[in-house]
């Protein structure tokens, strides 16, 4: 017997402030002194960030100024790697391609995920909602690489989809090793996560706003666009941002579903390291990717919280 997934019951009437919470406009007095208790919770995060983000980032920056001689990296301070990479047309082509593909994946995933998240949030019973969430989590149980490889069986010229199309006299349509296949891979990677993030955002919408819209004779579609989406904006934007981040850095889908064509930045990184051990130049590409993601993330967060007090 499969046990029914537990918890994750969402509020039916939207979020409400707990009893005793300070009313709007009244700021509680903040404790300025850092207590040992507080540090117990804050320190692991700080240590984690220093160890696994700050130090590697500093090393990556340093590495980008190193040089390579006889296939061995030499500590150095030379801007040649930056000048070389930024002076190459192929780098900017790959940059534009990657940016466009990630943006398209972000929009497409958000559009496809929204109806699913909306239905789960507003149309399903509590029990069905728990199952739906459980089903969205299941894909994470298997390796992304395995899931992408399995798509090859569906998308190849002799694959399952073309065989079925052949039964009705259609095709075969080339799908594998195309941008379409790359996009399917991106969806495989980010769709479940985007649905979940959108769902949590939709679930906390104050239902009284929706009821009020309906009472004021606002149609269902208009309610979605004028009440639901603006109310859930923060979560929807963050979900789209995650789709962008995951797609922007993904190597697996462009190479195994897209056939490495067109070249993305992640593919360019491997190309750069494959010949001549040019890890410093790969570091330049990686830092450019990190910088781009930071700009996009800050812009998205600013847009998500625009007009909201934090």
């Amino acid at each position: 017997m499969v046990p029914e997934p537990q918890a994750l019951t969402l509020p039916a009437g939207g979020a409400s402030l707990p009893a005793g919470a300070p009313s709007a406009g009244v700021r509680p007095t903040m404790r300025r002194r850092i207590s040992l208790y507080g540090m117990t919770f804050a320190l692991p995060l700080l240590i984690w960030q220093i160890l696994f983000f700050f130090f590697p980032l500093v090393f990556l920056v340093a590495l980008s100024f190193w040089t390579v001689r006889n296939f061995a990296m030499q500590p150095d301070f030379d801007t040649v790697n930056w000048a070389t990479m930024y002076g190459r047309t192929v780098f900017w082509q790959a940059y534009g391609t990657t940016l466009a593909l990630a943006a398209a994946a972000s929009v497409l995933t958000s559009l496809l995920a929204f109806p699913a998240a909306y239905a789960i949030a507003f149309k399903l019973s509590d029990s069905a909602r728990r199952w739906a969430i459980f089903l969205m989590v299941i894909p994470f149980f298997t390796s992304y690489l395995v899931r992408v490889y399995s798509w090859q069986i569906f998308l190849s010229d002799n694959g399952i989809i073309n065989v079925i199309l052949g039964w009705v006299g259609l095709g075969p349509f080339p799908m594998l090793n195309t941008v379409l296949a790359t996009m399917i891979g991106y969806l495989t990677l980010s769709f479940p996560l985007v649905v979940l993030l959108q769902l949590f955002s939709l679930a906390f919408i104050d239902r009284t706003l929706i009821e009020a819209a309906h009472n004021l004779r606002c149609g269902r579609v208009r309610t979605v666009f004028e009440v639901v989406i603006p109310s859930a904006r923060t979560g929807l934007v963050i979900a789209a941002l995650f789709a962008f981040i995951l797609s922007f850095g993904d190597f697996v889908s462009p190479i195994y579903l897209g056939g490495g064509d067109p070249t993305t930045l992640s593919i360019l990184i491997t190309d750069t390291t494959k010949s001549g051990q040019q890890w410093p130049r790969a570091a330049v590409i990686a830092l450019t990717m990190i910088g781009t993601l930071m700009v996009v993330a800050f812009a998205a967060v600013k847009f998500a919280y625009k007009g909201k007090s934090t």
Binding site: R88, T89, V90, Q93, A94, G260, D261, P262, T263, I267, L268, D271, T272, K274, S275, G276
Partner: peptide
């Protein structure tokens, strides 16, 4: 070797 590799990247792109 770098010249050949750089051309290969351009060809792919």
């Amino acid at each position: 070797l770098e010249t050949w590799n750089d051309f290969w990247s351009e060809y792919k792109g």
